[in-house]
């Protein structure tokens, strides 16, 4: 039975670690399917993390913090849209700028306003057990004894897939990323759809960041996103631009990350650095095994103007 408890802990960790990646990657999947690549996810997550913490600290309400984080990062998503969609600037360049601004701004805000605060902890999100379902062996504790944001992440992916694949809105978004001119001819607003997609992407990255500061930890730490924005960027591609693919890729990453921690805790006689790189090696190996046709949207990264 001991190994079962161990497996359960491993899978619980997998789901917890995957949640912030899932939020961010699903949001970015929408953006990229609409033809806009935003490499500034790390910056957006940091903005979300600091906003959620600051608002939760000031108001005493964690959910207000999560909401504010989504709003703040969505605002930055829209600003990114002004530069890339309206002005038609290079998306990679603007994304790189967004990373720098997010990194700088989150530390700056934290130091300027919380630098002298001594007790900086907040009450983090609580675990909500779903009755009956959590009694199922292994699966119960893994899927039904988590905080509400984890449930939200798990539901987000199938819901996003449904909207993308089965609704008019989803069809419109996908066509904007594949054939923007045809979409415009059909009477839809390319600009409007792309703005909606980057705002949504920003909001999801913001919530992913909020998860780190108010659900996972109970404080903000500078640079606490620790590369997850870049991992999420990789997950979008690895998940082949599909929300469910993003969920699976996030779970794979979460599992290997938890596994390397577990192996270290078992004092496995391997240099720990080789355990630490496990998630990154596993991602490459998985991509090799699962390789196939690329599903990259055709108009990804190409600015749209009526003239061209």
């Amino acid at each position: 039975m001991e190994w079962l408890i161990g497996l359960q802990a491993l899978l619980q960790a997998t789901v917890r670690m995957a949640a912030p990646l899932t939020f961010t990657a699903v949001g970015e999947t929408y953006g990229e399917r609409a033809g806009v690549i935003n490499i500034g996810l790390e910056g957006l997550m940091l903005i979300g993390a600091v906003t959620a913490y600051a608002v939760a600290f000031a108001s005493g309400n964690v959910w207000l913090g999560v909401f504010a984080a989504g709003l703040a990062a969505a605002t930055f998503g829209v600003l990114f849209g002004v530069v890339t969609i309206t002005l038609g600037a290079n998306q990679i360049v603007a994304g790189a700028a967004l990373n720098l601004i997010g990194l700088g701004l989150s530390s700056f805000i934290y130091r300027a306003f919380f630098g002298s605060v001594t007790n900086r902890a907040i009450q983090p999100l609580e675990t909500v057990k779903i009755p009956l379902l959590n009694q199922i062996p292994v699966v119960g504790p893994v899927l039904f004894e988590q905080n509400l944001l984890v449930y939200a992440a798990l539901l987000l992916a199938p819901l996003a897939a449904l909207v993308l694949n089965r609704t008019m809105l989803g069809l419109a978004l996908r066509s904007v990323g594949e054939h923007p001119k045809a979409t415009a001819t059909a009477g839809l607003s390319v600009i409007g759809l792309r703005y909606a997609a980057v705002a949504f992407g920003g909001m999801m990255a913001g919530i992913g960041g909020a998860y780190l500061s108010v659900a996972y930890a109970n404080q903000f730490v500078e640079n606490m996103v620790a590369g997850r924005g870049f991992i999420a960027l990789a997950i979008v591609v690895f998940g082949r631009w599909s929300p469910l693919g993003a969920l699976w890729a996030s779970l794979l990453f979460g599992f290997t990350f938890a596994l390397q921690l577990r192996l270290q805790a078992q004092s496995i006689p391997i240099a720990y650095q080789f355990l630490q790189i496990l998630p990154y090696v596993a991602t490459i190996v998985a991509m090799i095994l699962l390789r196939g046709q690329s599903a990259q949207p055709k108009a990804l990264g190409v600015p749209y103007t009526e003239r061209t």
Binding site: V93, A96, A97, I101, G102, L103, S107, F108, R111, G115
Partner: peptide, 13 residues
């Protein structure tokens, strides 16, 4: 705060 560098760099870009 030293993070001001990143903000300025990002804004310039």
């Amino acid at each position: 705060p030293s993070s001001m560098t990143f903000i300025l760099q990002g804004l310039i870009i």
